[in-house]
Each structure stands twice: as C-alpha cells, then as structure tokens.
Amino acid sequence: MNFDPFSMQKKMFDEWEKSTAEYVDKVMRDPSFMKTISQNMGSTLDMQDAIKEQTNKVLKSMNVPTEDSLDGLYKTVHNLETRMLDFEEKIDDLSDMFKKLVEISESIQSEAKTSKAKPKAVKQATKKESPKKSK
C-alpha cells in the first residue's frame, strides 16, 4: 500500500507554510508596508491623545485627579526608588571597604604581636644560656 494520506497532508501543509512564510516576510520587509503600518499606528496614537486630552479636561473640571497630575507622583516614586538603590550600593561599597580595613588592621595587630613576641623569645633564650655559661 503506497498511498499515505496522512503524510501527504502533512507534506502539503509544510509546503504551504514555507511558501506563505517566505511571502509574508517579503511583504513585511517592504518599506511601503512599514510606512502604512506606522501611519496607521501614528493616527491611532493621535486619536488616543485627543481622547486623553478631552478626558483630562472633564476630570479637571470635576476636581478629580487626572493621569497628568498622577504623573508627578510616579516620577517622585521612581526617583525615590533609584536613589534608595544608589544609597544601598554606596552602603555596600562602604561595608566592603570597612571589611577590608578590619582585615588590614587585624593583620597589622597580629604582625605587631608576633614582632613583640620574637624579642622576648630571644631574651628568654639568652637568659637560659647565661647560667650554662657561668657553670
């Protein structure tokens, strides 16, 4: 039985998909298509702006906060967030520096201790040696 309708159907779909994708890709790369799309989008956004402006006027006349008046608040919130993160970074840097300073001071202290301990050991050794010599 050579006839296989299932794989034939799949092959047909694959061919259709490939040629359609190629065609649509070509159309969408066309500068005139891009121009039309951006013009449509531009006019939609202009319309949205006009509606927003009118809504703001109505809300203002009713003493209701508008999006524009909330905008200042958003900006403040954003500024506060960024400043807080900047402070956190500075605090982290300072704590890193502090850690390093502690490490340095600890190593200096331990070095000082060992350098103090060394002459004592020499003195002790000379003390121990001297009685032997007298004998």
Binding site: L73, Y74, K75, V77, H78, N79, T82, L85, D86, E89
Partner: peptide
C-alpha cells in the same frame, strides 16, 4: 507599574 515609564536601562542594568 505606571511609575516604571520613567525606569531607564541604567536602572535595570546597574541598579536592580
């Protein structure tokens, strides 16, 4: 959120 319209690339990369 709405305040994120002011969030810059620097905020995402360096700060957060």
């Amino acid at each position: 959120g709405p305040q994120d319209k002011y969030t810059t690339f620097e905020d995402h990369i360096i700060r957060w």
